[in-house]
Design a protein around this nucleic acid. Sequence first.
DNA 1: GTCTATACACCGATAGAC
DNA 2: GTCTATCGGTGTATAGAC
Lengths: 197, 197
Amino acid sequence: MLGSPIVDWQTKRREVARSEILSAAWDAARDNGLAAITLRDVAARVGMQAPSLYSYFDSKHAIYDAMFGQAWSEYDEIEKELEERLPASPRAALKVGSRAFFEFCVTDPARHQLMNLRLIPNFTPSPESYAPSVRVFERLRRQLSEFGVTEDADVDLMTAVIAGLIDQQLANDPGGDRWGRLLDRAMDMYADQVGLP
Amino acid sequence: MLGSPIVDWQTKRREVARSEILSAAWDAARDNGLAAITLRDVAARVGMQAPSLYSYFDSKHAIYDAMFGQAWSEYDEIEKELEERLPASPRAALKVGSRAFFEFCVTDPARHQLMNLRLIPNFTPSPESYAPSVRVFERLRRQLSEFGVTEDADVDLMTAVIAGLIDQQLANDPGGDRWGRLLDRAMDMYADQVGLP
DNA sequence: GTCTATACACCGATAGAC
DNA sequence: GTCTATCGGTGTATAGAC
């Protein structure tokens, strides 16, 4: 592959810059809220002028899109590692897995809003950015099926219970654990419902 | 009360205008999304110029605030009527009540975002607008306590289950009923958990 | 009192010089 | 690739007509 290193340098340099921009965007989202991100602020955080961002992203939505993919990819990696040391007991595995997702969402509200809610007007993730979230969901389906839970409705009920605890925690007790401490109990409630041992 | 009719005319006229503005704001929210409301658009819908809105509301946030109070007041009225013909059976009552809230939220996503999520940056409802939502929550507490459910954690679990179904329905199957048809089952699951007959 | 006209600072986005 | 200049739009605010 002669000559390809030069392309790699350029590509890598570009990727580094994109990564720095995304990092600045996350900082801005955590500081002022996801919807309150401004290109001027993000640019200033990386020492650029606002229009220069357009050399790396086609639009503000493209930044949101990359952030969406990044967040789900990050959680996908966490779950991939977690999967190898998951308890054999269905209930214990349910509790460990749901706790991981709960903590991931609750520790960064802006990230959760982007991942799980549709609060950016007219923003729909691109297929590439959507892919890692599909991987996470398919892994959940597979894990549940190994415990004998195969009905779509059963999986939907599971996601609803976890999503509800996360949303209530963030909306009504941010920084606390009023709903977080209900998580294990909620998983037992679900396990009873779908007949898990 | 001589002379008071004049005051009433003025007050009523003002209230009518405020009501029309709010109605236009709801239309705009449903058309373009809650966060995408613009004062110029709202004003145009009621045949005004944008600055004229400041004669009726102190700021855009004041409009959101009034919308928040209006939405919860409306649901408070619905529940007040519903309460008189609630089934005696705890499980049936749970299903009827949760269905009412679910439908109210799902039929108007913009309203749900305003009522239950915190997606408008720096917006916190005023005490007056917050009051009707407290009334709704206290009614739920009272109804549950009549069934013997008195623990705060039990009430929190209930709100989380319903909130989760609503959020998943709106985020992943808007316009459908993929999570809506799980509502009765979820209420049975909850009733089992808290030991309701 | 209510409206129109106008202004300000900021936003996302684009054009074009270098 | 990065900059300056600029566009149309936004929330917000005030001055002043009627």
